[in-house]
Amino acid sequence: MRFDVLTLFPELFAPFVEAGITRRAYASGQIVLKLWNPRDYAEGNYRRVDDRPFGGGPGMVMLAEPLARCLAAVQADRADNDPGPVVLFSPIGQPLNHAAVEHWSAGQGAILICGRYEGIDQRFIDAHVTHQISLGDFVLSGGEIAALALLDAVARLQPGVLNDEGSHLEDSFNPAVDGLLDCPHYTRPEEWQGQRVPPELLSGHHAQIERWRRDQRLALTARQRPELIAAARAAGRLNRADEAVLAKAGAAGL
């Protein structure tokens, strides 16, 4: 799997591939990450990559030509001149969720465009971008943080990256399980600042522990993200015991 990133700040990515659990995906070669700076493909002594917007207004807009040249170099460098999906991180993009992460983690990679300033010349987007992704209803100063978020989420799903191969199955939002939020977690000591670990987790009774975790996930999801309960119910992922827990929590009929 190969990801190429077009960014004016390639130095932001170096610590990411050298630290933390997800570094294993890069060290093993499961994910190949190449960084490309559009400034290297700009003309003139100043290697200018932006200019003022037509029609006036604040801020600057990234020029189409340096991006197009940089993208052409990336595509020529990929195997068999594979153009690959071209992803732009943008507020108008589709929200990044678990299903989208699973889609990208099972693919061959992509070319990621990290915009800056007020945006990118629309003509470049119309000509080359195949997908647009958003992290949510807010604006970042550039696409690098969004690109890192996608890369991190994809890397941790690669085989051998996590210590426990099954740990990602218990992640929040995983539709392969039920799409609910994860339950609370506890570790030593058993009592901390007057707060004790729930006795169910200390019982050693596996069925009781699993029921407690399931109940917690249901109650937490109903309280924090009720739309996920509705989606799980519509998909037939809730059983009679689950519905009894929701009724007790006052969340029946969500």
Rank of each mutant, 00 (worst) to 15 (best):
Q208W: 05
A176I: 13
P226V: 11
A149K: 04
G166K: 13
R213D: 01
G194Y: 08
H168F: 10
E227T: 05
P198W: 10
R217P: 10
S172I: 13
E165H: 09
D178R: 14
L162C: 15
Q208D: 08
Y186W: 07
L169A: 09
A222M: 04
E165D: 13
F173C: 06
R211T: 08
V161L: 04
Q208F: 01
A207F: 01
G179K: 05
N174W: 00
L148D: 03
G204N: 13
A207H: 01
I145M: 04
P175A: 05
L181A: 06
D215K: 07
E190L: 00
L201F: 02
R223V: 06
P199W: 04
C183V: 12
R225N: 13
P189H: 05
R214E: 10
H206Q: 12
T187I: 08
G204K: 10
Q195N: 14
I145C: 09
Q158G: 09
L218P: 03
P175T: 03
E170G: 12
I145P: 04
A153P: 13
L162P: 15
H205Q: 14
Q224C: 07
H185V: 14
I145L: 08
S172H: 07
E191F: 02
L202G: 11
V177N: 02
A176F: 01
L157D: 02
C183I: 07
A146H: 09
V177D: 09
L220Y: 00
L162V: 13
A207K: 15
V177E: 04
V161A: 01
L228R: 15
S167T: 14
R225I: 12
G194A: 04
R196N: 11
V177Y: 00
P199M: 07
A207M: 12
F173T: 15
L228P: 06
V154M: 02
V154N: 15
R217Q: 14
G194H: 02
G204Q: 10
A146G: 05
H205S: 14
D152Y: 01
H205V: 09
W192L: 14
E165V: 05
R214Y: 07
A155W: 02
R211C: 02
V154T: 10
A176D: 14
P226H: 03
E210W: 00
L150D: 02
R223F: 00
C183L: 01
T221Q: 04
H206C: 15
D164Y: 08
G160A: 08
A147S: 14
E190F: 07
